[in-house]
Computed example of a mutant assay.
Amino acid sequence: MDTKTKYLKIACNLATALVILWFIIFILPRLMSYFMPFVVGLILAVIANPIVKFLEKHIKINRKWGSMITIIAVIGFIVLIIYGAATLLGQGIGAFMNYMPTMTTNAGHEFSKAMNQLQTLLDRLPFTKDVDFSELIATVEKYAANALTGTGSSPINAIGGVAKSLPDILVGVIVGLMATYFFVADKDRLITGIENHLPKAFIQKIEHIYQQLVTVVGGYFKAQFKIMGVIYVIVFIGLLLLHVRFAWIIAFGIAFLDMLPVFGTGTVLCPWAVIKLFSGNYYIAAGMIILYIVTLVVHQLVQPKLIGDSVGLDPFAALFFMFIGYKVSSVVGMILAIPIGMIFINLYKAGAFDTVVWCLKEAISDFNSFRRVDEKK
């Protein structure tokens, strides 16, 4: 092809790639938020569809009736689980919040005691005798006092906010339920209608992306939740043996931190052990260190088996994606960055970006040829 046609194609392909990237980053999240009842309906339909297929194939129930029965059963089951979990969590968290002022006061006193012990130790050393922790101790005590005396938003204001949003919630629930029914009952008709109005190449790419999403991201989060469950059990048992109050709530927080990139069980257990050590609680300090080592070893042993090489990322690539995710959306971005990065890498391996890569290579190659100076002439 001639140069003009070639660069017209390069410009069109690069512009298309930029528009798609802009749409995914800025427009798609807003669209999903705006049409959230339909998104939730689609997720429920994906859950309910295998059950509907089973009823239709083996029990010979009409798909529309099977859809209605399954949707009611799935929603009832979800509501039952949420109600039971909310009841247990509400009782536990209520008791934990009542104990929070006492725990905060004890933690402040224990931290001050540990810092005083550390200050005494540093004063005995010739090179660190001028180090002063008094400002740090005062800051921690002030933070603890603010945590005890600080007041949050009024319950009346919270109830008023819920009351104002009640119509939106009601409409969202109704639309979500109806969308779920139509997604399940009229699945084949909806798919056929979409296929008739979209190019086959585009549909194939969407199917490929969907498969990558289910395989890579679904496998990643499934493995991470399994690891979180294992770590939770270990930390819960360890905290029970150390006679820590509300061990089940604290263990959940530590296990959740362990699931996050960069963070881990050591984020809580190591500072906790150091404070216990300098405050004179050697038994608890040793227990915290042992618990941290056990969780670290178990995590390293379990993670490769659950996640696997096909779902994993190169460590440097994982670090890069985590940093970008943190810059975009803080901790939530860090959580989502790795699975999103895995999708892009798998799509790149599958050749989804071959056209863009070719355009960039051709443009760079021609630019380098143009700027090269032939010294013989």
Rank of each mutant, 00 (worst) to 15 (best):
E110A: 13
N346Y: 00
A352D: 11
G176F: 10
L118A: 12
L296M: 11
T267D: 09
F320A: 00
T267M: 10
L89H: 08
F225D: 05
L240Y: 03
I335F: 10
G160Y: 08
E110F: 03
I289D: 02
V184A: 13
V173Y: 10
M259H: 03
F96D: 05
T16N: 04
L257W: 05
T128C: 03
G193H: 01
V216P: 02
F54W: 12
I78H: 08
M36L: 15
G351T: 01
T120K: 09
S134E: 11
G280A: 11
L21V: 00
Y99L: 09
M103G: 10
P155A: 14
L241F: 10
G325M: 00
M115A: 15
Y34T: 13
G325K: 01
E195Y: 00
D130L: 12
S134W: 00
I227H: 07
V373G: 00
I237H: 07
A17M: 00
N98T: 12
I174Q: 07
V19M: 02
L306H: 06
L241N: 04
G150Q: 12
I250D: 15
L319R: 05
A363M: 12
N98P: 03
M103C: 02
L125Q: 15
V356G: 01
H299V: 04
R245K: 14
G266I: 15
M115H: 06
L242K: 13
E56W: 05
M115W: 01
V298T: 09
S112E: 10
P101M: 04
F202M: 02
S134M: 05
S112V: 08
T120W: 07
K57H: 04
C359G: 06
T120I: 10
L242F: 13
A318I: 06
S154T: 11
M342Y: 09
S153C: 02
V39F: 13
A107E: 10
Y99A: 11
D168R: 08
V19C: 02
I237L: 14
V268Y: 12
V217E: 07
V331A: 11
G193A: 01
L170P: 03
P126C: 07
T192K: 06
Q117R: 10
L360D: 01
T267Y: 05
V235W: 15
G152D: 07
G333N: 14
I324A: 09
I24R: 02
C359E: 10
I209M: 01
I284V: 14
A185F: 12
L301M: 12
L21W: 03
I43A: 14
K276M: 12
F344T: 06
L21E: 08
I47E: 06
L296T: 15
